[in-house]
Nucleic acid binder design. Structure first.
Length: 288
DNA sequence: TCCCAGGCTTGGT
DNA sequence: ACCAAGCATGGG
């Protein structure tokens, strides 16, 4: 079972640094040996850049690769057309963002995991969000193992709604750093378990409808809804605006009088790729 | 000690 | 429709 898949993808086509540091995923890690680890629900994968051959080597069997990870990493989407559009525009900040974050991809993440993860993200810092999620997985996920080039390693799956629903508020709050968000997560888990809130209702809807359904959840507002739409539902017209994006709009697009005007510019010029644009801008602004 | 972190709810106008 | 507090928690 030491299978691995060699994918001829250049760093310009697949850029894990950009993906990892654009704030779309919390369970992606780079170890000192250059190995990347990604966890999603109860799936795991390891990969590394082969300097000699100049392509990414994924340590996974062919079936999992074809049936899960190709889709997860959004490798079916061709970004070359939108990239060309960006580079021929006169939007200098966006052009610099693309040069910096080339190989960015919008992942197809698990709906439940992204919903809970972004509820945790409210009024929180990224390192703390990551720690909190790790605690939840360790406490109420299942121990899993996966094959890596340095041997079998372990991780914990993301806790299911049923598992969380059975906890008391005290248990879910104690030692998890969730704070006041615990009650949002507990209530939502209970509603999902009892079918009062059907996650399936979110599938096969357009952006407007999905935003409405998501915001009906207690503890979920416009920002988190946009994140879940983009990362959990892959609705690419979502454009989450957080403190960093507010800074971008204020400092790098000051020619627009209002956020609404700015959004109109994004929506008309980059229809169907707004979320991708946002990720490029966020990554550039945050990591430069 | 105070301030902030990838916001949201609630309770005022 | 818009505005301000208050909300847990840890790190600077």
């Amino acid at each position: 079972m030491n299978a691995n898949v060699c994918i001829k993808l250049s760093k310009e086509e697949f850029n894990p640094e950009a993906i990892m540091k654009s704030g779309q995923i919390f369970r992606m890690y780079k170890k000192s040996d250059g190995l990347y680890h990604v966890y999603s629900r109860d799936n795991a994968i390891t990969f590394k850049y082969d300097q000699k051959e100049r392509f990414w080597r994924f340590y996974v069997n062919q079936w999992d690769w074809q049936n899960f990870w190709v889709h997860f990493f959004d490798l079916e989407t061709d970004y070359s057309k939108i990239n060309r559009k960006i580079m021929t525009s006169n939007d200098n900040f966006l052009k610099k963002s693309l040069e910096y974050g080339k190989g960015m991809r919008i992942l197809h993440q698990d709906l439940w995991e992204s919903l809970i993860s972004f509820i945790i993200s409210q009024q929180n810092s990224i390192p703390k969000i990551q720690k909190t999620i790790e605690i939840l997985c360790k406490n109420w996920g299942n121990k899993q193992s996966y094959v890596t080039p340095i041997g079998i390693q372990h991780f914990y799956s993301f806790p299911t709604p049923e598992r969380i629903a059975n906890l008391s508020l005290e248990t879910l709050t104690d030692g998890t750093m969730l704070g006041y968000r615990a009650k949002y997560i507990l209530n939502l888990s209970k509603d999902v378990k009892s079918n009062k809130f059907k996650l399936e209702k979110l599938l096969n809807n357009d952006y407007e409808e999905s935003m409405k359904i998501l915001q009906s959840i207690n503890g979920v507002g416009p920002k988190i809804s946009n994140c879940v739409c983009l990362y959990g539902l892959h609705l690419m017209e979502s454009y989450p605006i957080d403190v960093w994006m507010s800074k971008v709009i204020e400092e790098d697009y000051y020619q627009f009088d209002t956020v609404k005007q700015y959004l109109q510019y994004i929506n008309t010029n980059y229809e169907g790729f707004q979320g991708y644009i946002q990720q490029l801008q966020f990554y550039y602004k945050r990591n430069l």
